[in-house]
Nucleic acid binder design. Structure first.
Lengths: 177, 177
DNA sequence: ACAGTACGAGACGGTACCGTACTGTTTATG
DNA sequence: CATAAACAGTACGGTACCGTCTCGTACTGT
């Protein structure tokens, strides 16, 4: 599994061949096929193994602090080599392989649920309207971070976090008028 | 070239093989290698051929109208099958192939310059501070659209355009205080 | 001691693909 | 009209990969 992940980061999905994984891991090919019936299953399992999980910020925090903490941890994940090199592959493969799409859906659902909790805290404080679509909110909030990561045009740092959160909050204020 | 594009959209970058392009296009393999010395050159040329160009909104429009028009046209591009199926591949390949990275850079530069013109109109109207990094602005503005396209969690429609632009403008107002 | 199981190592057939070489045919150009 | 360039078609060697298969080995529970 680790060998497969290394190969994915070095050469992309096409570099994750059965032979290459066997060569790098020291595992026999027969053992590989004992666990995964086909190469596609191996690749899907690899992405499942890679999916990170975001954590809900501490209970006591208010809406804005929760938001900053969560966005900060997302940016930290995005700064990691593993995230940066695997997410583009995941997003490309999900358009064609249903198994990969399901893995991506799982990642997305986990992310959505964590942000939903933060949005709920905002709703309690009267900052987030109850009627707004939460998926839209997630998109508006995380989109800039995603773009910064994919295009590498803006450094993934504190300034980006601050500006992104500030813009999101400003957008919320306008929307609830 | 058209055949290669079809193959890319159907089966991803790995489906764009020399043999497949030859079979679909009716062109001889010798002719292919007369134009592109290697398969990688063909793929790079294909992406170059695919790069769309955004247009600057009409001269007379004010800042907000220009913004809405441009964001609307971006969303329209993103709704197209061609964009949706090729951009993920482009973003994945650019992390490993320098030729592809240059194509992506070209796309990004073109997009940036068009938006810069709109930001300039905003600066004239006193809505956009002159000191803010324009790449950051582009990221904050287009990021949500990119995310909506890649994750397909929010429909690419007028509502998204409206909310995205509204949030961006609200963020601008806060930043210039 | 013995059967059952998971494993390492690797050979093998079959396929897909790349890039080259060669043969005619069409097209353009002086 | 002659000659060169561009082309279609195709065969070929070499390589990489997938998935199957066999064989020998270590470990485990009875």
């Amino acid at each position: 599994m680790d060998a497969a992940t290394c190969l994915l980061m070095e050469g992309g999905p096409t570099a994750v061949t059965v032979d290459a994984v066997v060569a790098r891991s020291g595992v026999a090919k027969s053992t590989m096929y004992r666990h995964w019936a086909t190469r596609d299953e191996l690749v899907a399992a690899m992405f499942t193994h890679l999916v990170p999980s975001f954590e809900v910020p501490a209970e006591g925090l208010g809406f804005e602090d929760s938001l900053r903490a969560l966005v900060g941890s997302v940016v930290q994940h995005m700064s990691g080599e593993q995230f940066r090199k695997t997410v583009p592959a995941l997003l490309m493969l999900k358009t064609r392989h249903q198994e990969i799409a399901e893995v991506e859906e799982q990642l997305h659902a986990q992310q959505q649920s964590v942000f939903d909790e933060v949005f709920r805290r905002g709703e309690v404080e009267g900052r987030v309207p109850a009627t707004v679509d939460r998926e839209l909110l997630l998109t508006l909030l995380v989109g800039p971070l995603m773009m910064a990561m994919m295009f590498e045009s803006v450094p993934l740092g504190d300034e980006l976090v601050e500006r992104t959160v500030a813009q999101f909050l400003a957008g919320l204020a306008v929307a609830s008028e």
